[in-house]
Write a protein that binds this DNA or RNA. Sequence first.
DNA 1: ATAGAATCCGGACCCTAGGTCCGCTTAGAC
DNA 2: GTCTAAGCGGACCTAGGGTCCGGATTCTAT
Lengths: 203, 203
Amino acid sequence: MPERQSSRKDAIRNREAVLAAADALFTRRESPEDVTMTDVAAAAGVGKGTLFRAFGNRAGLLRALYEARLEPIRQAVETGPPPLGPATPPRDRVPALLDAILCFKLDNRRLALALEEGGSSSPYQAEHYERWHSLLRAVLEQIPGLTDSDFTTHALLAATRADLVEHLAGEERIPREKMRAQLANFATRVLASGPLQGLTSEE
Amino acid sequence: MPERQSSRKDAIRNREAVLAAADALFTRRESPEDVTMTDVAAAAGVGKGTLFRAFGNRAGLLRALYEARLEPIRQAVETGPPPLGPATPPRDRVPALLDAILCFKLDNRRLALALEEGGSSSPYQAEHYERWHSLLRAVLEQIPGLTDSDFTTHALLAATRADLVEHLAGEERIPREKMRAQLANFATRVLASGPLQGLTSEE
DNA sequence: ATAGAATCCGGACCCTAGGTCCGCTTAGAC
DNA sequence: GTCTAAGCGGACCTAGGGTCCGGATTCTAT
């Protein structure tokens, strides 16, 4: 667990340099997998030992980058104004949250891709997925008549998977605004199931 | 492209042996990634050269296994009786198709996992995904009032992603029947948007 | 200021796993 | 039987993630 902060200023400077270099590399290069750790170290003007001591491993570096980029959104969701903040009525907040996630992944395609496929273990063991899931689920549960909130949350989040977004934006050339509209439409449809009762799956 | 059939019987025998060995290994071992190509070759009593000549690369082997397992379902979907076959009314066929996919992934967890994450490129470039997508989409388009069929299809299929299924079955310990019910419920909710007009995203 | 300790630096090195190569073997045709 | 094209298999190559350790740097106490 090499994640604790260091106080030495060269360590801090190097950490920043690595973050910046990795950031640049991931946005520049086509595919995440041809950004090697050696590349990152070289671009940051730092040795591999330094890189690995600071972040543990590849996944650690990705996570650090991801969290940093995600911070503003986390703020907006937790303590911000509507439509993202807690004061928003659930039926409006769900599409807004999904939209925020989608936009984030559109703006950080390579990075999100690298983190989600990243190998090792599924994205479902990542902490940040867990956070989104429990938040979204809590919001869903405030909507009356909505069942299977756990599964529904997973299914909604699955529609924003990085590789799907990448495919839609890259291969199918779907413009950003259209994709956002489609996702919002989809989410709304899922929520708008007032009249449907009795379909509930039982325990 | 080393995919063409050989007529020599030793080649055929070896191909079968590899397929069988790989199948056994993938179901036995915990995680797909600790089944190495060398393992497979050894278990099949065959050299690595043979293995790679027969299947090209790791993805090729996975694909071959996957297609073989998928064959019966493909049959049932293309020319079988309802609820999977073409004679089924669209509103019933969509959940049935998704259910078939879900069951398949539940029955072939490791394999589906290995193929979908498999690294290299996203599952969205795989031929079999393309097949499912166009089929499902065609069915969706027969439902009046349903818009964004392309995106909706992607979103529905995303709910059956191998790693999500694995997570639900493995970590969350959701029983098979419950998961099937939840997916069916979800699909039905998505389709049951008759009253909703005007939400359509415009070109 | 300076010595000493703790920490950090960095690149040579290791290991694993996918993939290739090539001399030897074998199936099948004549 | 023999000739040949195809197949065989394991030694070998390579790339990239991760480790190691001698030397440099920073912080602290005096």
